[in-house]
Design a protein around this nucleic acid. Structure first.
Lengths: 197, 197
DNA sequence: TATTGAAGCTAACGTGTGTTAGCAAGTTTT
DNA sequence: AAAACTTGCTAACACACGTTAGCTTCAATA
């Protein structure tokens, strides 16, 4: 009889969620079936329901674990006594490292959150909106201090966040530069485009 | 008996494809059903098949019409006798105007191409790869001419293309700046981050 | 070793899917 | 007005999906 293998500190549910993230990334949430997931876990589809409540629950877990990490980080950075442009740089570096180290989850959270069901959907959208506003506020304060060019802050946030999601393509590409080089290039272009000089 | 309305020069198939683009954008390709589409066209699901071959065909049409427009544009720009940095700017402006004027199609082509079936899938991926290489070549030539900072050109392309796809969010947002302002901000940040000075 | 709870299995359900067949209504051409 | 073609409809198909019920097997505890 098949059995889901677990290490210490990793519940069987965690294993399922992780495999789900990979599958949702590869095929998209809707196109990935519970039978696909079961196969990748090494078990029958019905057996998954001993550990999870529903397919959507898997998406919740993925999306909110990612969103929470970003929220905690911006909490932390916001209150640091450093110039705004450095806050922006820190945030960008965090985004980059998150997408490199938690590729599947971040990707899914970014592209598949549409398939969340209310009330999770509204909740997620709210968090996202708030996050972007706080990010924009940092940029605006940088503009007031003349550290940053006079630009529309919300637009700048959009550009930053989406630009960084380009790493998804880098992650899948075969002939790639190192993660460090990638990060350096990103910062050069993005922060370089902001700085007022 | 219901009937699909058409203007001159717009076939019934075109009407279906357009509505499909909207639906695929809203729900995603997999989650959008032919019955949904039929309703939005004002007809029964089975009737759609008098005009189209399959659901996937709709996706082909959307993805390749978008891809072709970009290919033709880069053909055109590549041979112009202007500095590389201006070529980059022209390409960016084209991307921006495409996403503003053909929002639904471009969005779908960007995010739903995964659901294409071979041989269209490989074909599409190839076109994408080639496009990015040609874009990167323009940047590399700009680096050689010292117009552009020394950066990894493929990374720069990723950043540009994804940054621009951020306009999707702008497009749906309620309190937005004008399209002209948006374009100006984008160019400032992106081109500003490239220029060697 | 006996007991118990966790974790797996098979079978099946109801529903929604893309698509086809066959026919009726409407429009254009002769 | 007849013929030919286009466009729509109803009904139904085969299938894949998420999920549940009920039972068995395994592993840990007493």
């Amino acid at each position: 009889m098949a059995r889901i293998k677990t290490d210490k500190n990793v519940s069987r549910k965690d294993v399922i969620v992780t495999k789900a993230a990979t599958l949702f990334r590869e095929k998209g949430f809707k196109a990935a079936s519970m039978r696909d997931l079961a196969e990748s876990v090494g078990v029958e589809a019905a057996s998954l329901y001993n550990h999870i409540k529903s397919k959507t629950e898997l998406l919740h877990e993925i999306c909110f674990s990612v969103a929470n990490r970003f929220m905690h980080k911006i909490d932390e950075i916001e209150v640091e006594p450093i110039p705004s442009i450095e806050k922006v740089e820190k945030l960008l570096r965090f985004h980059i490292s998150e997408i490199i180290n938690h590729y599947e989850e971040v990707y899914v959270s970014d592209r598949e959150w549409k398939h969340l069901a209310d009330p999770y959907l509204s909740n997620f959208q709210n968090q996202r909106r708030i996050y972007r506003k706080r990010f924009a506020a940092i940029i605006e304060s940088g503009i007031r201090n003349k550290e940053i060019k006079k630009i529309d802050a919300p637009t700048a946030v959009l550009i930053m966040l989406h630009a960084i999601s380009g790493i998804e393509s880098w992650h899948r590409s075969t002939q790639k530069i190192s993660a460090e080089e990638l990060e350096a290039n990103m910062i050069t272009i993005l922060v370089g485009g902001l700085i007022n000089k």
